[in-house]
């Protein structure tokens, strides 16, 4: 069966300045050749730190950006040469909270988008009502978006993204900046879309637990390259050997960590609670590592064995922690 999304050796460089004719400009490589396929009905995650190239990938797939090389197809249509065909059949929740019109009401926003997505009028009325009820904003439909909370805005952005009943949905950091309750709503909503409505979803996140819980498969992306791609379970097998530890220390300069042990990474820095180190070590190494830390001048506050997560996979693969 044809994959719903097919990305092959995709590359993207951004010019550092406006590329005027007859002007030489330098380019920044944001994607250095990534490839992956997403099947119909799959919930696929792109996980990576800031600047990894997640948004760039989404923008290319949603026809907002032109790739510098390689190819990308969505539902069999090329995202460059058949952009219009792609646009009709997909939708996205973009990064940030200003993707809707704040000076229009929730209802007016959805009607506007239903029009520019060419949804037939009687169909649109019905769908807007359904969607607003689904995201719990029907009662607030006539209020301006301006007065909405961040969570409400995001729920409306999701309703907007479903206005053309898309086959494929792209979500760029859909829970970023949301309170716990709103984030939970978004996750469960997306999960249901895939399970009950058989939508194909590609989402980006740098929230490990989210990726792990939601996604059928995850591509870990770093510096414009996919460094691992598998199901969450299989990815975690990479760190199933040995033991994963969290060591909380004080008075340790971050650059010293690697000198003590290359497998450790700084996963959290907190001025009051100290620095949290994390790593996947061999069982017999632990005493030596702790000793090393003390010798490096650190005050070790606690050592704890923890269940490995995707964060440990990322640390193992890159030597760095993927911080929230």
């Amino acid at each position: 069966m044809m994959p719903t999304i097919k990305v092959k050796d995709l590359r993207k460089s951004y010019p550092k300045r406006i590329p005027l004719p007859f002007r030489r400009v330098e380019w920044v490589e944001a994607l250095k050749g990534i490839s992956f396929k997403v099947r119909k009905g799959e919930l696929f995650g792109l996980l990576g730190p800031n600047g990894a190239g997640k948004t760039t990938t989404i923008k290319i797939l949603t026809t907002l950006l032109e790739p510098s090389g390689g190819s990308a197809k969505v539902l069999g249509y090329d995202v460059v040469s058949q952009a219009r065909e792609v646009r009709r059949r997909i939708n996205l929740v973009a990064e940030g909270e200003r993707t809707l019109y704040w000076r229009l009401s929730a209802y007016e926003n959805l009607r506007y988008f239903s029009n520019i997505y060419y949804v037939p009028k009687d169909e649109a009325e019905k769908r807007i009502r359904e969607l607003l009820q689904l995201v719990g904003l029907w009662e607030r439909r006539n209020d301006l978006v301006m007065g909405f909370s961040r969570g409400m805005k995001q729920r409306l952005a999701i309703a907007k993204a479903l206005i053309n009943d898309p086959e494929v949905l792209f979500l760029d950091e859909p829970t970023l900046g949301l309170d716990v309750q709103s984030a939970l709503f978004v996750r469960e909503f997306v999960e249901r879309l895939v399970k009950e409505k058989r939508k194909t979803v590609l989402l980006t996140t740098h929230h490990m637990a989210e990726a792990e819980r939601l996604c059928d498969r995850i591509a870990i992306i770093d510096h414009g390259r996919i460094i691992a791609l598998n199901t969450p379970e299989n990815l975690k097998r990479l760190v199933s050997e040995g033991e994963t530890v969290e060591i909380r220390v004080r008075n340790l300069r971050p650059e010293k960590v690697k000198e003590v042990d290359g497998r450790l990474a700084v996963s959290e820095e907190d001025p009051t609670r100290g620095t949290l180190l994390r790593g996947n070590l061999d069982e017999e190494d632990l005493p030596r590592v702790v000793e090393g830390l003390i010798r490096a001048g650190a005050k070790v506050l606690s050592v704890e064995r923890v269940e490995p997560t995707l964060e440990d996979v990322f640390i193992k693969l890159t030597g760095r922690a993927l911080r929230d």
Binding site: L100, F113, Y118
Partner: peptide
């Protein structure tokens, strides 16, 4: 600036018409 332009560009309407 706000990002609403991209929401329009991503739609089948097309930027020119908008």
């Amino acid at each position: 600036q706000r990002g609403t332009l991209e929401s329009n560009v991503a739609s089948p309407m097309g930027l020119l018409e908008m």
